[in-house]
């Protein structure tokens, strides 16, 4: 067997030798979607991230944690619930708005004053220790809390999901190849298995999942599992798009900041390259080399 050369690395090697891809369960490449955040100038679609957060909270959060994020992250610069103090020229008043619209100038509302984030956090009950008795208790969430995990530990998570562990979604779009397309394809990729494929009990066929059989039931099977406040129709496709958008933001919340600093840095470096080139040529002028 080919794998002999590393035979002692038993664990690593078992996989080289094990047939991975059977013709009938070959993993499909994620379907390439258009995302507003791709490309060197791409940014997140704030409304879509907000809608996606609602889908996560209503649907995904029942099984999937988001443990590297805190509620306060939602209201930070670039987050879906970043609030700004904006001067309203019609009323002559300063008012708090969600995000900045139409080129308005505004000052970011400090996280402790952000009413949206406070409301989101307060709606969640967080496990804690009672300060007087030391007993386990629950209290309303605060913006500084981490996103509440649905299960107290991985064993409980497996027990509740037929042995499968729902992965944490904090960096899910970075943790999969072609992450955003993968998540979107997976969410919309459930179907009946092709003819001749043996059904795996307790699992669902999804051609975008490695091996073809996933333990997660179709999470966005019907329309209107959430009600969007902006009037967008909550079709399964729309919800999948939105939640993918939200998870892309959650995986890489500083992406917009990075790209905008990148533009400035690259522009600066290009000018510097030109100037240094001139200086270099000037120094070497008259020296044959």
């Amino acid at each position: 067997m080919r794998a002999h050369c590393l035979a002692a690395l038993a664990a690593a090697l078992a996989l080289f030798a094990t047939p991975q891809a059977h013709a009938e369960t070959q993993q499909a490449h994620p379907h390439a979607e258009k995302w507003s955040f791709s490309g060197p100038f791409g940014t997140y679609d704030r409304a879509s991230v907000q809608r996606g957060f609602l889908v996560y909270e209503t649907v995904c959060a029942a099984c999937h944690s988001l443990r590297h994020l805190s509620y306060r992250n939602l209201g930070e610069e670039g987050g879906p619930f970043a609030a700004y103090r904006v001067f309203n020229e019609e009323t002559g008043q300063h008012e708090t708005t969600l995000g900045l619209h139409g080129g308005h100038e505004g000052k970011l509302v400090e996280i402790q004053d952000n009413p949206y984030v406070a409301a989101i956090a307060a709606a969640v009950m967080i496990p804690d220790i009672d300060r007087d008795t030391g007993e386990a208790t629950e209290r309303a969430g605060r913006p500084s809390d981490r996103f509440r995990s649905p299960y107290p530990n991985p064993i409980a998570a497996r027990a509740a999901n037929g042995g499968a562990l729902p992965p944490d979604l904090s960096v899910i779009t970075l943790a999969r190849h072609d992450g955003a397309n993968y998540v979107h394809s997976l969410l919309t990729g459930y179907s009946d298995p092709p003819a001749g494929v043996d059904v795996v009990q307790g699992k669902y066929y999804n051609r975008y999942f490695a091996g073809g059989w996933i333990a997660m039931p179709p999470p966005l099977a019907s329309a209107d599992m959430v009600t969007y406040s902006d009037g967008t129709a909550a079709t399964p496709e729309q919800m999948a798009r939105d939640v993918t958008h939200f998870l892309a933001w959650a995986s890489d919340p500083k992406m917009e900041m990075r790209k905008s600093l990148g533009l400035q840095s690259m522009a600066f470096l290009l000018v510097l390259t030109f100037l240094v080139y001139l200086a270099y040529k000037q120094v070497w002028r008259g020296t044959k080399h």
């Binding site: 840095s265 690259m266 470096l269 290009l270 510097l272 390259t273 240094v276 070497w284």
Partner: peptide, 15 residues
Amino acid sequence: MKDLFITVVFLLLFG
């Protein structure tokens, strides 16, 4: 100066 020039070009790739 020559090293600086290439270093800046390299920084473009780095960036």
